[in-house]
Simulated scan of single mutants.
Amino acid sequence: MNTAAMLEVKGVAKAFGANRVLEGVSFEVGQGEIVGLLGPNGSGKSTLLNIASGFLDPDVGDIRLAGKPIAGMRTHALVQAGMTRTFQLPIMPQKMSVLEVAMAAATENHGLFSTVFRTAADRAAERSSRERAISLLDELLLTPVAHLPASAISGGQKKLLGIVCALMAKPRLLMLDEPTAGVHPNLRRDIVTVLQRLNAKGMTLVIVEHDMHFIREVCNRCIVLDQGEIVASCRPDELASNKRVVEAYLGASVAGGRP
């Protein structure tokens, strides 16, 4: 694994009024790592994910993607820079098929569904996007539902489609927000396999997740937040022996080795 920093977070702080959510958070994610971002409710992990992915501005601090400053950069610019993300509860359009949603996520498709003033370049971009979308839907096991309304597929399939949409932009860094929450066990195994395969191809992943079995199975390293501060950065198998992590997040049952 190449350990050059793909993501650098330095001294990031965020407050909402008198509520200080993040307190000078600093960490790095190496190129090719799969890092789990953990913490109890209210620890600041969702705020940190939203700041890193351009949905919130930090009050102070620096964020870099492959050495390039990105703090305060808008989401579309972050996508172009090589970072995309998924959402915990993806909302899909009512009148678009799974394939159409995937195609619409391609960064080169600015006028995908327009029927006027289409150039040869537009048509070529659409063909390229369709081919990539079909390939990704197949890779993420969504080919059987490709022509169904995106709003009609299962919650787990919507999460897989969210990953497809994020991958359409060909990111170097993919951030995922609880990709297995509420997902059927069979689809959960599929998501694990997909993420491991993406990482094997060189993609860097940062995953917000509560499922400790998933974290142990997928992640190389965990960063644990509590009350807006990092209390641990360690391998998943070291979590249960870390007193600060146990006190902040895991609880006695997990510390004792039970799921």
Rank of each mutant, 00 (worst) to 15 (best):
I153L: 03
V116D: 10
S114I: 03
Q227F: 15
I34N: 07
L142P: 08
G256K: 13
P58I: 06
K14L: 14
S151D: 11
P171A: 00
R216Y: 11
I163N: 08
S233I: 13
A104M: 10
S53Q: 02
E100S: 05
D62P: 03
V183P: 06
K95Y: 13
P149M: 08
P236M: 09
S253R: 15
A133N: 09
G257M: 00
A124D: 12
A125D: 14
V25I: 09
E131V: 07
L89A: 08
E139C: 01
M96L: 14
S46R: 02
L65G: 05
V192K: 01
S43L: 07
R130F: 04
A13Q: 08
L205D: 09
E108M: 09
V9W: 04
G30F: 01
I63V: 12
L48Q: 10
T107Y: 13
V164L: 09
R130I: 05
F214L: 12
N199H: 07
V194W: 07
T75K: 06
A121E: 13
V145E: 12
H210M: 01
L174F: 09
K45F: 09
A102S: 12
R20H: 15
V12A: 11
G61W: 05
L250E: 12
A232L: 07
L48K: 08
D122M: 03
G111Y: 14
L7T: 04
E238S: 10
E178T: 09
V254N: 12
P93C: 03
Y249A: 04
D122P: 06
N2D: 15
V206P: 05
E100P: 03
E217V: 02
A4Q: 14
E108S: 13
F113T: 11
G67H: 01
L56I: 07
E126F: 06
A133T: 09
A248E: 12
L161F: 12
S233D: 15
V29C: 12
M168G: 07
I63W: 01
C165I: 00
A18Y: 00
I70W: 01
A125E: 13
P90C: 11
V208D: 03
I215D: 06
G228C: 08
L250M: 15
S43C: 04
L140A: 03
T180Y: 00
R216P: 00
E247H: 11
A121V: 04
E131M: 06
Q196A: 15
V60L: 08
G162C: 08
A13M: 01
E238W: 01
H213D: 15
G202W: 06
I63P: 02
Q157R: 03
G156K: 06
L99A: 13
G251T: 09
S114W: 11
G44Y: 04
L136M: 07
R216E: 12
